[in-house]
Design a protein around this nucleic acid. Structure first.
Length: 290
DNA sequence: TACGGACCTTTC
DNA sequence: AAAGGTCCGT
């Protein structure tokens, strides 16, 4: 077990772990104290001091820094985004401390995002927690379990998930997990990690239940393809508002989906996925009020 | 290529 | 009514 202190460098951990990039973190004993699981690793983070994170974990500092991309200077990233897209300045100001995360286990991220279509974050987190209950214990005093392998998820009976309120995803989640196993499971995902973004985007959609939006989520968060810009209902609303008011009232078609991705990649380059996070999360937080 | 509807359940 | 969609019909 490790205990270490990490300079926050502006990172708002609570904001990051509730921004829909990961689903396995929660506030634990006290305000601003979080526990979470990420692949083989568990963390307890006391973020009550905004400048210094106090971490307890089974993993060393390097793993923690990778997860939150603390090796990257967020100020420089924000400056680059601002230089290419001044229109995002207001969004970045509203969400200081938001970072693009880098989850360590592609299988875990793949399956977690299978829970997200046509769903809401509260319910997604509950479903993810139930799936995690099929995995081995990671840390017993917090009750954190390692996320199960794809083969385990593929073997969960549909009725079991139906009884747990998974709805039609009771069939789609194990089916997609099975399709992942058939393609080679973790090795297949690792291979796509090394492939070009466009290749990963296409290949992922060969799995039943994975369309363009999930393919981009998985490319971004499981495979760390930072060119990926998942276009969900929130990013769509933000794009219509900021860039394409003439699309007001129209629907998100495949053509417009591709157009938005190409635009974001051209404008923000390798920071496209990071930039997308500001537009997405601001809209998620504020859409009801609009 | 674009648009509608179905699909589970929960929450606003 | 809508949720971090996808699929299948027109």
């Amino acid at each position: 077990m490790f205990e270490y202190e990490v300079p926050a460098n502006g990172l708002d951990l609570g904001l990051c772990v509730s921004s829909g990039q990961v689903f396995r973190w929660r506030e634990h004993d006290a305000p601003k104290v979080y526990i979470g699981a990420d692949g083989d690793n568990w963390y307890r983070v006391d973020a009550s001091d905004s400048d210094l994170l106090r971490v307890t974990s089974n993993a060393g500092k390097a793993s923690f820094e990778r997860l939150f991309r603390l090796d990257i200077d967020a100020g420089a990233v924000k400056a680059a985004i601002l230089g290419r897209g001044p229109e995002l300045g207001a969004y970045m100001d509203l969400l200081p401390g938001l970072r693009l995360l880098r989850p360590s286990d592609p299988v875990e991220a793949f399956i977690c995002f299978l829970c997200t279509p046509n769903n809401n974050v509260a319910r997604i987190s509950k479903m993810v927690a139930h799936l995690a209950s099929f995995g081995p214990m990671l840390e017993s005093s917090f009750g954190l379990q390692r996320f199960p392998e794809a083969l385990v998820v593929a073997s969960i009976p549909e009725a079991e998930l139906r009884a747990r309120g998974f709805g039609y995803r009771s069939a789609t989640i194990p089916r997609a997990a099975r399709a992942l196993v058939e393609r080679g499971g973790r090795d297949w995902l690792d291979n796509l990690k090394g492939a070009a973004y466009a290749k990963a985007f296409e290949e992922l959609q060969s799995i039943p239940g994975i369309g363009p939006k999930l393919a981009d989520c998985i490319a971004l968060f499981a495979l760390h393809h930072t060119l990926a810009t998942p276009v969900d209902t929130h990013l769509w609303q933000a794009v219509v508002r900021v860039y394409h008011p003439e699309w007001n009232g129209k629907s998100l078609t495949d053509g417009r989906y591709r157009q938005i991705g190409e635009f974001m990649r051209e404008r923000f380059g390798e920071y496209a996925g990071w930039a997308h996070q500001y537009l997405f999360y601001e809209n998620l937080l504020n859409w009801r009020a609009r």
